[in-house]
Amino acid sequence: MADNTNQTTYKVSSNPHVRSKATTGGIMLMVIIALMPATGFGIYNFGLRAVFVICVCVASAVLSEFLFNLILKRKQSIFDLSAVVTGLLLALNLPVSIPLWMAGLGSFFAIVVVKMLFGGIGQNFMNPALGARCFLVISFPAAMTNFVTDAYTGATPLAALKAGENINIFDMIIGRTGGTIGETSLVAIIIGACFLILMGVIDLIIPGCYIVTFVLFLGIFGQRGFDPAFITAHLAGGGLMLGAFFMATDYVTRPMTKWGQVIYGVFLGIMTGVFRVFGPSAEGVSYSIILGNLLVPLIEKFTRPIPFGFKRSELKKLKGGK
């Protein structure tokens, strides 16, 4: 009766039968492309050694993931490029003078301890690159805060600002200052961020809330009021921009819900303000984001979207049926 003509079998699946072109690897590739201006400027600013640090970090990250999968006989996952992103982000968060073995160790920590041990991509509860950065700062404080290079002998602009010295705003915006490899150039980071926003990879909710909250906090508690030079210095100096656009927006460790993202951004802004204004160190972005990461499950729980056609007061009905 049925299928008497020929024995062709067709593929069957649940709907929908068409899929968008976006893939995990494609998204990661776009993040890598978006990080290129900052990477390029880092190399231009700090010289050949920056290339070594970046290469070691990326290679160590990819190799760690490769070996981890190999040893545990898991499906190879390095082709989703997320290890490359982690390695690159970590490198951009390191001072150029860091011993290369430390850089490699940091990548290993990021991939194996922060990401793979928790179940691989999508399962880590904190940003691997930032987790590794904090691990390095705690383990090797001297190497991690040594920003003295051939090009720049002084302190980072934020440290200088904190010490009450004068700083050159224009240099800070362009990025011709000391600091970690990727964080110095405001211009390069913004170019990359614009690319990501235009490609639809990230949106402005988290970076926007983060930066606006931080500026307000600084204006109120920074004891310099809304002095444009002071504010600009804080925005351009340190890891704020890199953190706001590339690390606070990390899919895995930020809330998925729109209002959750608003809360998360505001929280990061306040925490960064607290760390920078009241804390002993000039920096605070990494710790703020990590603290924020830890709160994500809680934030998501409370900012769940209300299903279409329901009012907040009717949510109990969801369980009951008719």
Binding site: T9, Y10, V12, N15
Partner: peptide, 11 residues
């Protein structure tokens, strides 16, 4: 393509 059923055969 979004909500249809995929079929085993045309009969």
């Amino acid at each position: 393509p979004m909500m249809g059923f995929s079929m085993f055969g045309l009969e």
